[in-house]
Simulated assay, not measured.
Amino acid sequence: MSTPLILLPGDEVPSNHLPSTKNNPLKLGSGVRLLSQPSAKPAASNHVLTATQAGILTTDAKRNTVSLQSFSNRRYIPTTNDLVIAQVHHSSIDYFHCIVTPHTAQALLGQLSFEGATKKTRPMLKGGDLVYARVSSVGVGAGAEVEITCVNPATGKAEPGGLGPLTGGMVFDISTGFSARLIRASSSSADHGDAIDGLVVLAELGKKLESLGGFEIAVGRNGKVWIDCSAAGENAVKSTIAVGRCLQTTDDKNLNTMDQKKLVTRVLREMKLIS
């Protein structure tokens, strides 16, 4: 097994670590940015990729993607194609102005950037409402505005991931590194019990809460996770809090697979959701 490549903010991504582009364009994931100018090296003809955060370089030859697996931290830097949970601050004629993180400028969400939205059918969002969105543009240079959208530009649909307003449920804070792991786990075969990046907490919660109607989850790369257990009826609030506690504890203590299973059982028993 090759030694993991750790990059710091500003480091160039070595070209020999990139997947072969061949007929497909290289796709950039979180933590990697394309510079506007090529490298000064005479032999370089392509643009240079640099790291925007510290992390381990990961590549996917099948999907032809490159990204950085960030370490557990609370800072988030918006990156194109990231899924985020944003909160509406206020609206203007054409946009909803949304908070992605408390430490970055507000992101712009077009009032028609929803599946099937028209001037008559667009969602009437107000301050404090939540949306699950994808970062569509981060601009170039200081002061550039971040834009987000709740539709897939290729299809006009709220896919994948059920983009759009989030109603009900609760939002919990997690680290950005853990949010990346959750996204990989929730979009993989984790529901069949497989450990993805050593993460089984979602699968365990899904199995043990199935009799109560299960739960819905939306994970934002900005360190936010939305959980809704409304199908649990009178146990909805307790179930939601239990899921949030399990995720936050797994994140804070970096639990292994066995400890995650024990945690889920203990928390659900404490909340009197299972016997």
Rank of each mutant, 00 (worst) to 15 (best):
S2L: 01
L5S: 02
L8G: 03
P9G: 03
N16M: 06
H17W: 12
P25E: 13
L26V: 02
L28C: 11
G29S: 12
G31H: 12
P42W: 12
P42S: 14
A43W: 09
A43S: 11
A44T: 15
S45Y: 10
S45E: 03
H47L: 15
V48K: 14
A51F: 01
T52Q: 14
T52W: 09
A54Y: 04
T58C: 10
D60Y: 03
K62G: 00
T65G: 01
L68C: 07
S70K: 05
R74C: 02
R74I: 00
I77N: 06
T79V: 08
T80A: 09
N81C: 04
D82E: 07
V84K: 06
Q87W: 08
V88Q: 05
V88N: 06
H90D: 14
I93E: 13
Y95F: 09
F96M: 01
C98P: 11
C98V: 05
I99C: 01
T101Y: 09
H103Y: 11
T104L: 12
T104W: 09
Q106I: 00
L108M: 12
L109N: 01
L112P: 08
E115R: 13
G116R: 05
T118Y: 00
T121Y: 11
G128Y: 08
V135A: 04
E145M: 02
T149C: 06
C150D: 04
V151I: 15
V151F: 01
N152Y: 01
N152D: 15
A154L: 14
A154K: 15
G156A: 10
G156T: 11
K157N: 14
G161Q: 00
G162M: 10
G162S: 07
L163R: 09
G168C: 02
D173E: 14
I174H: 03
S175V: 05
G177C: 00
F178Y: 15
F178W: 14
S179L: 02
R184M: 04
S186R: 12
S188A: 15
S188N: 13
S188E: 10
H192W: 07
V201F: 07
A203W: 04
G206W: 05
K207W: 06
L209H: 03
E210T: 03
S211I: 00
G213S: 10
F215E: 00
I217C: 03
V219D: 08
G220A: 00
K224W: 06
V225E: 11
W226E: 13
D228Q: 01
A232H: 02
E234V: 13
N235T: 11
N235W: 11
A236T: 04
K238A: 15
S239H: 04
T240P: 07
I241M: 12
R245P: 06
C246Y: 06
Q248I: 09
D251L: 03
D252N: 15
K253E: 14
N254D: 13
N254Y: 00
N256M: 04
N256V: 08
T257G: 01
K261G: 09
K262R: 12
K262Q: 10
V264M: 04
V264Y: 03
L268M: 14
M271L: 03
K272H: 06
